[in-house]
């Protein structure tokens, strides 16, 4: 690990001030950052420890939503009564991620900003445009089983690894930040992430030194909720495909649908065309297949991840069947 200057901040303003220096990273749980620093993939010159900031609370908001401090650990958020009762898909997504030990450390803000687990991003002996811009991409022609089939570019096919962020996309979360200039900024979660394009090393729209302070959830969507994760082992593995869904059926017709996807996209994925294919339709195979067609219309495999196209289709169809199943059967 390269050495660094360690600072501890006692307020968001102080944290942002300390992060004004070049090559600074905030550290909260550190479960991904320290992993990458040991491999010298991340080489910050300064770490600003934000664990003592007062961002550890989950609060009810008057409109029926929830305001989550950026430092709330993943395990606490998953176990929070309001999350379990009103946003069960978020609780499930959190519990589907990592291990008990990691969830006890990893935070809400840090989870959003975790980096890809692409093998080639991690292996410094290979080419990676995300780790070393302009060096090329060893993944395209390599073992890309876990990598993305949507949102990719010629420069990068890295998948976003988070489960929590997929759930939060389905729940239409807002990311609240403190900018280096001291202003509060609010971003829809879909606006936080950037597609890789020609600059896969730039993953979000956050400015250097911008600090995530809260994540806000609007009132829960109508209907039944579900998070399903398909992976290579039963626990403690990243998603090959995951689906976060909330679907409401009334009078034999799908009235509302929110669907977001993990494992297949370069960012937590949501596509309005998928939901549009369902609204107003009777629940059933034709509508579910049409939604899958919409999801996968631009999807492209790269060899060893070709299987994700049929897997995503089947997982989506199975989830929609579960979400629209009449109760009592």
């Amino acid at each position: 690990m390269k050495t660094f200057d360690y600072r501890r901040a006692d307020s968001p303003a102080a944290a942002v001030g300390a992060a004004a220096a070049a090559r600074t990273r905030y550290i909260a749980g550190g479960t991904n950052l320290l992993d990458l620093m040991k491999l010298q993939i991340e080489t910050p010159e300064r770490l600003v420890d934000i664990n003592r900031l007062d961002l550890h609370d989950v609060e009810d908001v008057a409109d029926g939503g929830l305001r989550i401090g950026a430092l709330v650990p993943n395990s606490d958020l998953a176990a929070h009564p309001a999350v379990r009762e009103r946003y069960p898909l978020l609780s499930s997504a959190l519990l589907a991620g990592a291990s008990g030990q990691l969830r006890n450390k990893a935070t809400t803000g840090g989870n959003l900003l975790q980096r890809t687990r692409c093998y080639y991003f991690y292996d410094t002996a290979t080419r990676c445009n995300k780790r070393d811009p302009g060096s090329g991409c060893s993944a395209r022609e390599g073992v890309n089983r876990i990598l993305a089939v949507l949102g990719t570019s010629d420069q990068c096919i890295a998948s976003h690894p988070s489960d929590m962020a997929v759930a939060m996309r389905a729940l239409e979360a807002t990311i609240v930040t403190l900018t280096p200039a001291g202003a509060t900024r609010r971003l829809a979660i879909g606006e936080l992430y950037r597609l890789p394009g020609d600059t896969p090393h730039i993953e979000t729209v956050l400015e250097p030194g911008e600090l995530i302070t809260h994540v806000e959830l609007p009132p829960p969507p109508p209907g039944r909720q579900l998070y399903r994760k398909v992976r290579d082992r039963a626990s403690y593995a990243f998603a090959l495909v995951s689906v976060a869904g909330a679907v409401a059926v009334e009078a034999g017709e799908i009235r509302a649908a929110r669907l977001a996807f993990g494992g297949i996209g370069t960012m937590p994925w949501r596509d309005p065309a998928v939901e549009a294919a369902l609204i107003g339709q009777a629940p059933g195979r034709p509508a579910f297949e049409a939604a899958a067609d919409a999801l996968l219309r631009d999807a492209r495999g790269h060899g060893s991840n070709d299987f994700k196209l049929p897997l995503a289709r089947r997982t989506l169809v199975a989830c929609l069947a579960e979400l629209t199943r009449e109760t009592g059967r």
């Binding site: 360690y6 550290i27 550190g30 479960t31 320290l34 420890d49 664990n51 990691l102 006890n104 450390k105």
Partner: peptide, 13 residues
Amino acid sequence: GRRINSCLTLAVM
């Protein structure tokens, strides 16, 4: 009282 991975945290924290 909480279980964590001691390899992924800095002593100074």
